[in-house]
């Protein structure tokens, strides 16, 4: 897999020079803190006294910590709903908005808007939509004669939160898919319609296979976002003092590290989450090798 031109001689020097800031950032910011987290996960550290060796104790504790297990399962459930949701809906949206329809720019802007709006502000708006007493959603339900639903109570909160997160992410997914769709040569559609293929056949036989690089990329990005999801979830489900009805893994890590004096446990949780993302990425790259079509 070789792409593009190879840098030569003096260009190489410039290449590295330009990359220096990023490499420093990566080395210290990302890889450095990753290694530090890995190291700390084998220690007990309350941030006040020097860390003490704990061996694999923190990892063993993960399986006994009910709150963490709940948070971890919430993250898994969330990802299982969120990732397919984002990929499928933003792909369909991109297909719809890839046509020559009047005002397509306006529609694209509308769907992209949540991406550039602050999560806190949009979460407040969604709070008004989901509100049990004052919410627009329940007002509509009651007008239609249904019983109101407590959207953000423990039992429904997960679903409600997934919907908001998908809504917030489809704009970005749509852009990725639109780029992928415009790269598909028009000739394929023209040739196939001459052969009598209908819209569905065209979508499943031409569009879908040729947009697989975008599907791969978008699935990977959505999964990473899903495992790190926090802001919308916390803003929608917080109830008073630092509590959330849908605690997710990131939230558990933060709480253990900065509120419960358990940096070691928090690090072990973070490493477990990172491993999960790594495993998922390995599966995705296997899938890429076998199913993704690069022209």
């Amino acid at each position: 897999m070789d792409y593009g031109l190879k840098p030569l001689g003096r260009e190489k020097l410039w290449l590295w020079l330009m990359l220096v800031p990023t490499i420093i950032g990566l080395a210290f910011g990302t890889i450095g803190s990753l290694l530090a987290t890995l190291g700390l996960s084998f220690f007990d550290w309350d941030l006040i006294n020097p860390p003490t060796w704990a061996g694999t104790e923190n990892y063993a504790a993960l399986f006994e910590n009910k709150n963490y297990i709940e948070a971890f399962m919430n993250t898994l459930k969330f990802s299982a709903l969120y990732v397919p949701g984002v990929v499928i809906i933003s792909l369909l949206l991109a297909v719809l908005l890839n046509r020559k329809i009047r005002g397509v720019g306006i529609f694209r802007t509308i769907y992209f808007l949540p991406t550039v709006t602050s999560a806190v502000a949009t979460a407040l708006v969604w709070n008004m939509i989901y509100g049990k007493e004052t919410g627009i959603l329940n007002f509509m339900l009651e007008t239609l004669g249904f019983a109101p639903i407590c959207w953000l109570c423990t039992n429904n909160a997960m679903m409600s939160v997934v919907i908001v997160n998908i809504w917030g992410a489809i704009g970005e997914g749509m852009i990725i898919f639109l780029a992928g769709l415009t790269a598909i040569p028009r000739d394929y559609y023209e040739a196939s319609s001459l052969d009598g293929a209908n819209d569905f056949q065209q979508f499943f036989r031409i569009t879908l296979p040729l947009v697989t690089p975008s599907i791969f990329f978008q699935t990977l990005m959505s999964a990473i976002n899903a495992f790190q999801a926090y802001d919308y979830i916390y803003m929608l489900t917080r109830r008073g003092q630092g509590d959330s009805s849908v605690p997710v893994a990131v939230y558990s890590i933060y709480r253990n590290a900065f509120h419960f004096f358990r940096m070691g446990d928090a690090s072990a949780q973070a490493i477990q989450l990172a491993l999960l993302v790594a495993v998922f990425m390995a599966i995705m790259f296997w899938w890429e090798r076998n199913y993704v079509v690069y022209e």
Partner: peptide
Amino acid sequence: KGYEEWAGIVGDGLIPVFDGEA
């Protein structure tokens, strides 16, 4: 010692009761 973690367990845990779900 452990106040905040303890308070979190009790406080978080009772909310479903008061929301009428437990």
